[in-house]
Structure formats: C-alpha cells, structure tokens
Write a protein that binds this DNA or RNA. Structure first.
Lengths: 252, 252
DNA sequence: CGAGTTGTTGAAATGACTCAATGTTAGTGG
DNA sequence: CCACTAACATTGAGTCATTTCAACAACTCG
C-alpha cells in the first residue's frame, strides 16, 4: 500500500488529530502493516493488550464472550478506524476479541511504542481520552437502548449504524456489503437470530430493505431511522405508532 | 476540611497517581471546595462540561434521562472518587446528571484548569485515559449483564457493587448506608420497582439481607455474590474465574 | 448432487411488566 | 403524643414481548 495513502488515513483518524506532518511520518514509520483473512482474529480476548492498530482495509467485528458463553457483538471497525487504545496502558488484557469479517489490513504499533509516542506528542493522550469518552457515551447509549427499546427498534438502529458507518450509496439506496448472518445481527442487537429474522422479514415485506446473505440493501433509510427512534428530521409524533404498525401486519 | 485530609484523598485517587507531593499541592490549590445538600444537582445533563471534581464527603448518583423519559441510574460516586473528566475536553456537554443522595462536598476544578494541569503533568492525561478505559469496560459489562442475566441476578449484582463501593463492615455483615428507594434500585438494575421489591422480598425471606428504607444490611454477601454470578471464591472450574479476569486489569 | 450451514416460520413457554389494591413508614402540625 | 398525609413498599392477577423449540426451506460449496 502506498505511503501517501497510509499517511492520509493516519491524518484523518481522531487519534492523530493535531499532529504535524513530520510527526505523522515519524508515527507511520514506527508502525508495521499486517494482514488477515476472513475469520482471523486480529486480537483475542484475554491476551495481554500489546497492540494498537489502524485499519487500512477490510472490516472486523468486536466480539465479547461472557462468562456464561454468550457472545456479544459490540461494534465493527472499518477502514480508517483505530482499535486497541488500551495497549497504551500497562497491565491490561483485551476485554474482547476482534475478528475479520473480510480480508483486513492494519497498521500496527506495539503498546509501549504507543506509550512512547504519547509521551513525545502529548496531544495524542488527549486524543485517546476524547475517543474513550465518546466510546463510553456510545456504550452507555446502547445500554439505554437495550433497556427501553423493543427488538424491532434495536434492529432498525443496528441497520442505521451499519449504514452510517459502512454503507455505500447506490441509486437512492444504501448498500451494506457485509456477509452478516442473522446470528451476527442478533448478537449485535441483543436478541436471538429468530427475532432478527422475523423483524427483517417484516421490513422486507414493507419494502424498507432487501436482505441477502452477503449484503443488505436499505431502500428507505428514512423510515428505518424513524423506527429506530433516532429520526433527526422527523416529526416527533407518530414515531411509536409507525414502529408498531410495521410489525403488526402479520397477515401476508 | 483540613488540607492534609484533602491532599490524602487527592493522592489516593486514580487521576492523580504518579504525581509528586509538590504537584499535588499545586493541584489542590487550583481547586475550590463546594457543598451541596440532599437532592441538589452537582452537574446537569445537557450543560457544558465545565467542571471536574473529586468527592470528599457524601454520595451522589449519576443519572441519565433518555429521550423518551426513562431514567437510568448509571452508578454512584462517593468519597474519594472523581467525576467530570470529560471537562478536560473542549466542546462537550455532560451526558448525565449527578444528584446528591446525601449532603456532599467536592473539590472542583474548572475544565480549562484541568486541561492546563494535564499539559503540565502529562501523566494526568494517561491516568484519565486509564480511568475512562476501565469505566468503559464496566459499562460494557453492565450491557452484557442486562443482556444475559435475569432480574434477580442483576439486583444481586447491584447489591454487590454497592457493598464493595460504599459498604461498611458491621459484625460479619455489610451495611449500605444509603436511603435508596425501590425505584432507585430499579433504575440501577434496569427493571421496575415492582420487580426489585419482589426480589428483595425473596432475599429477605431467605435471610440474605435486611432491607430498610434508609439502609440495606447484607447478611450473607457470599450467597448474594453467588446469585450475582460473579462469585470469585466459588467453584474453581475456572470458567467463571477466567471470564472475570478477562475484564479486570491483570494483577500488577 | 449432497451435506452442511443459514434462514424462516408456527406454536408453546416464560420472565418480566403493568395495573390495581393494600399495607407500611416517615414526617408534619395540631 | 396522636392523627393525618404523602411517599414508599408489597403482593396478586392478568398481559405481553420475546425466547425457545421444532420442523422445514433455501442457499452455498466442494
């Protein structure tokens, strides 16, 4: 991969905001490029938190296995996004695994190298802090959603998140080019693969989406947003009514 | 309040680890002591994140109101614990409110003062990062619990957390001296006041606890821990122990 | 083509919530 | 000190969203 391209990705990431081009070059030189194929683990839960990385190609999922064997899909990381900030700290282990859902490449730094860099470029520590604050707010929000929203809304929310993060526009629609199983989506939304299947069927029947095995096409993102309950444009009346009306029609 | 006592609290907090006594004095002088009575808001959701603080007396609860009016009780802060790290960053608003559940005092720093301090003592930024990483792991864990555990387990978990954080030993038992309503506990555990009441009744009937309006007495913390599913002493099959060790930072 | 994985859908089971009625406690002022 | 009131707690019965289980359909890949 060309150096300028990597530099560009670096400069665009939140962790490296406010650094001079020189600093960015230095940082780039301190990292190494690694590659994984589909299904590989970029990092594994329980291992020493030794690496920080910036994804330059592909998409991976962050998953956590609970003591009782449940899997939770926390989020996805794609091109341009970083993971493993925890490696800057001593004596931590990864609280989750990251698995490639398609072939991936990432720039990788050793944890102590990252710590050194933060020493040399103190703004990086603040950047990291900002990232963690935002991430925690997101986690908090997911918690709230799990608490207050129904399965249908949470699935819609998941679709919106995927669309915003990884979706590609395609004549008026949004295409999510990931081979996600119903089980993946269940783990992502905190429900079962059966419920996901039911909800997606309803969405499909109503023409909101077109879900296939290797991609999801969102036909009416606005309506999906509305069901998700995070409709920024929308009237704040009827959101619930609309949400309900989408799942009620059981009759085919 | 005596200066030495404040310095001691400062030194004991994670945010100020690794600072020289001189530095601690400087920092102490930069803060001001404020007081609140029961029910007061130390900070309010939606306001500019302008203050960082260290609680020196009393206990307060972090609550979040969702767009649809639900309240979520995130955690408690007590003596020696800090809140408002977000104030070190520009252009953030508080994502939650903090309300005193008993008379409180706290050392308060302006956000920009905190940012300056981080500039002068770079280790503070790393400390803050560590705190946020741990906090995010906790939030993540709560999410998991909400997903996989039943109400009974979550309430037990809440009791364990309260006991660990704020409990005082009292002949073989643990006393939690807080006037928590069933509704508070419901918001804390992600359920209704009715379910909390039922669960506590069962616990009480089985002699695990003794819950009154102004305090909770935990008679058999081990059994409560076991119900919570985070019993470290329990079965050494390792599965649970391993799970726990994945989330908690490694022993030093 | 066949085997294994993934997806769909109905029916039954269930944990938790809602609602309503009733009991209890703390705090107030007479 | 008592009566009164408001806040808080308990408990049962009914309801509901979601899960579980099972059977079957569709797709993928060697």
């Amino acid at each position: 991969m060309r150096k300028e391209l990597l530099l560009e990705l670096l400069a665009a990431n939140e962790a490296f905001v406010g650094l001079s081009p020189d600093a960015l070059e230095t940082i780039l030189r301190a990292g190494t490029l690694r590659h994984w194929t589909r299904g590989d683990y970029l990092i594994q839960q329980g291992n020493d938190a030794a690496h920080f990385a910036l994804v330059v190609r592909g998409t991976a999922k962050l998953i956590q296995v609970t003591p009782d064997g449940h899997q939770v899909l926390i989020r996805f990381v794609g091109r341009g996004q970083e993971f493993g900030l925890i490696a800057a700290l001593r004596d931590f282990v990864y609280p989750l695994s990251i698995q490639a859902v398609e072939p991936c490449s990432a720039l990788v730094w050793q944890g102590d190298v990252l710590a050194d860099l933060m020493q040399r470029f103190p703004i990086m520590a603040l950047n990291a802090l900002r990232i963690m604050v935002i991430r925690n707010q997101e986690t908090q929000r997911r918690y709230q959603e799990l608490l207050t929203q129904r399965v249908e809304q949470r699935v819609a929310q998941a679709l919106v998140r995927l669309a915003d993060q990884l979706g590609k526009p395609e004549d008026e629609m949004i295409r999510i080019d990931l081979a996600l199983t119903r089980e993946d989506l269940g783990e992502f939304t905190g429900t079962t693969l059966y419920s996901v299947s039911r909800v997606l069927s309803v969405f499909e029947r109503n023409g909101l989406i077109d879900a296939q095995r290797d991609r999801i096409l969102i036909r009416k993102i606005d309506e999906v947003r509305q069901i998700a309950g995070t409709d920024p444009s929308g009237s704040d009346t009827g959101v619930i009514a609309c949400g309900a009306s989408c799942i009620i029609p059981k009759a085919r």
